[in-house]
């Protein structure tokens, strides 16, 4: 579904991503784990078109989207829930969902169906539909951000650190939701620091280290890799 081939990404003269390749197949949950500053968010921004790679290609369903503007990439069926949630703070919950469904706004029945679906998935959003999003708690904002991304019927959903800054109970909640979305047929590319939680729901995983893919394999392989256990899972067994 998504195939990233040897991309390089720079901010000015500093190259952040060096020769990164990975792929996401239909129906999978793929996770990219890595420390702060490894370049996880940069990869996400590049895939969604907010940043442009200096080299390499990004194929989405066979089409090279490396030079396509971000707003056109969404139309192809690739939505992202950005890092730090980034819900529109002065819009109500409902208005946030309306903006998420901007691309399907002319198809009223579909739009209504999606809203209902999101309200079913996240009942708290229905309760708070008239509330301004800036007043929601972090966990609620994260749910809203995911629901907003799902409004455009994406084939591939990108989630950039959905667990960042959340209370542990919400973290568990969010990962359950991600699993649910995956079971309902959405392909998911996830970037996380919470490696153990993410690996549990993932099919495959990549480890990103200072802008390079250091390791790739099935989630189970990665989970049992001694180096990963030591640096990311923090449960070294003696």
């Amino acid at each position: 579904m998504l195939k990233v081939n040897n991309i390089h990404v720079s901010y000015g003269k500093v190259e952040i991503i060096k020769q990164v390749s990975f792929e996401v197949n239909q129906g999978e949950v793929v996770v990219i784990i890595g420390a702060n500053g490894a370049g996880k968010t940069t990869i996400m921004k590049t895939v969604t078109g907010l940043l442009k790679p200096t080299q390499g290609e990004i194929l989405f369903e066979g089409q090279n989207i490396a030079r396509t503007p971000a707003e056109k990439i969404v139309k192809l069926g690739l939505a992202m829930c950005p890092e730090g949630r980034q819900v529109f703070p002065q819009h109500t919950v409902y208005e946030n969902l309306v903006l998420g469904g901007y691309l399907i706004r002319k198809d009223k029945p579909m739009f209504q169906k999606n809203i209902e679906q999101m309200y079913n998935l996240f009942p708290i959003l229905k309760e708070r539909s008239k509330q301004v999003a800036g007043t929601l708690s972090g966990g609620e904002q994260q749910m809203l951000a995911i629901a907003r991304a799902m409004m455009s019927n994406p084939k591939l959903l990108l989630l950039d650190e959905p667990s960042a800054g959340l209370a542990p109970i919400y973290v568990k909640n969010i990962f359950d939701m991600i699993q649910k979305l995956s079971e309902q047929g959405t392909t998911i590319l996830l970037v996380e620091q919470m490696a153990n939680m993410a690996l549990k729901i993932a099919d495959r995983a990549y480890v990103l280290e200072t802008g390079r893919i250091a390791l790739g394999g099935t989630a189970v392989e990665i989970m049992n890799d001694p180096k990963v256990v030591e640096s990311y899972l923090g449960s070294k067994k003696y």
Binding site: K45, L50, E71, V74, K75, M80, L99, Y102, L103
Partner: peptide
């Protein structure tokens, strides 16, 4: 609020 988040909604 944010140009880039707006683009992520498919809005130019």
């Amino acid at each position: 609020f944010s140009h880039s988040v707006t683009k992520l909604m498919g809005i130019s």
